[in-house]
C-alpha cells in the first residue's frame, strides 16, 4: 500500500530527475524550491504526535528552505545575469539516465539497511541517498557556479531528510542551528557569486583555475 509519505517522497525523486534535465538556471532554482518545500513537510506525515511548537518549527523550515534560500540565489543571478545556461559537463540526457540508475541503485542499497525508526516507508531511505548523491552529481557535473550552489542545497535537503526522520533524538533548537548555518552559507555563496560575476564578467567556474596545487 502506498501511504501519503511515499507519495510525496516520489515527488522528491521526480524533482531530482527534473533538476538533472533542466538547462536554465531559473528553472533549476524553482525545482529546488519545490523540493525544499516537500522535504520540509515530510516530518508532518511521519505519524508522530506533534506539539504546536514542532509544527511551527516545521513551517519555519519550509519557509526558509522553500522560499528564502531559493530567493537569495534568484536575486543573486537576477542582479548579474538573467536566464543563463547551467553549462553541463555531462549532457542532459546522460544526466537523466544517470539519475534513473541512481534511483535504482539507491533502492537496492537501502534494502540492506534497517533504520529502526522508519519501518513503514519504503522510499524514505532510498530518497535520502538519491538526494545526497544527486546533489554531489550536480556539484560535479555542472560548471556554472550557481548550479554548484544548488547542488549543495540538494545535498543539504538530503541530510535534513535523514536528520528529521532517521532518529527520534532530534531537538528542534539544534535543528534550527543547522538551518541558520545553511542559510548563512548560501548567503555567503550568493555574495561570492556576485563578486565572481563582477570580477570575471562570467560565472563559469572554469575561469576559476589560476590557483593550482
Amino acid at each position: 500500500m502506498i501511504g501519503p509519505l511515499d507519495t510525496i517522497l516520489s515527488l522528491v525523486l521526480l524533482s531530482i530527475l527534473f533538476s538533472f534535465g533542466t538547462s536554465l538556471l531559473p528553472g533549476l532554482i524553482k525545482v529546488l524550491a519545490f523540493q525544499g518545500v516537500i522535504v520540509s513537510i515530510v516530518p508532518l506525515l511521519l505519524g508522530h504526535e506533534m506539539a504546536t511548537g514542532e509544527i511551527v518549527f516545521t513551517l519555519i523550515t519550509m519557509v526558509i528552505r522553500g522560499v528564502i534560500i531559493p530567493l537569495c540565489i534568484y536575486l543573486a543571478i537576477k542582479k548579474v545575469a538573467i536566464r543563463r545556461e547551467v553549462e553541463p559537463i555531462i549532457g542532459f540526457n546522460a544526466s537523466i539516465l544517470i539519475g534513473l540508475i541512481l534511483i535504482a541503485a539507491a533502492t537496492l542499497v537501502s534494502r540492506n539497511f534497517v533504520v529502526p525508526s522508519i519501518s513503514d516507508s519504503a522510499l524514505l531511505l532510498s530518497t535520502t541517498i538519491t538526494l545526497l548523491v544527486g546533489g554531489m552529481f550536480l556539484l560535479i557535473a555542472r560548471r556554472n557556479a550557481i548550479a554548484m550552489v544548488l547542488g549543495y542545497i540538494m545535498m543539504e535537503n538530503g541530510i535534513y531528510l535523514a536528520g528529521t526522520t532517521f532518529s527520534i533524538h532530534s531537538r528542534h533548537i539544534v535543528e534550527f542551528g543547522i538551518l541558520l548555518d545553511v542559510l548563512a552559507a548560501v548567503m555567503i555563496m550568493a555574495i561570492i557569486l556576485q563578486n565572481i560575476k563582477h570580477t570575471f564578467d562570467d560565472m563559469d567556474t572554469a575561469l576559476l583555475r589560476t590557483l593550482k596545487e
Binding site: P116, I159, G163, S167, M189, L208
Partner: peptide, 26 residues
C-alpha cells in the same frame, strides 16, 4: 569560493555522520 564550497560540502558529510551516530543509538 573554493574554501566555502569544498568545506561546506565536506562538513555536510560530517553532519550526515552525526545523524548516523544518533541512528546507531536508536
Amino acid at each position: 569560493w573554493k574554501y566555502v564550497v569544498v568545506c561546506s560540502v565536506g562538513i555536510a558529510m560530517a553532519l550526515l555522520g552525526s545523524v548516523l551516530l544518533r541512528v546507531a543509538m536508536d
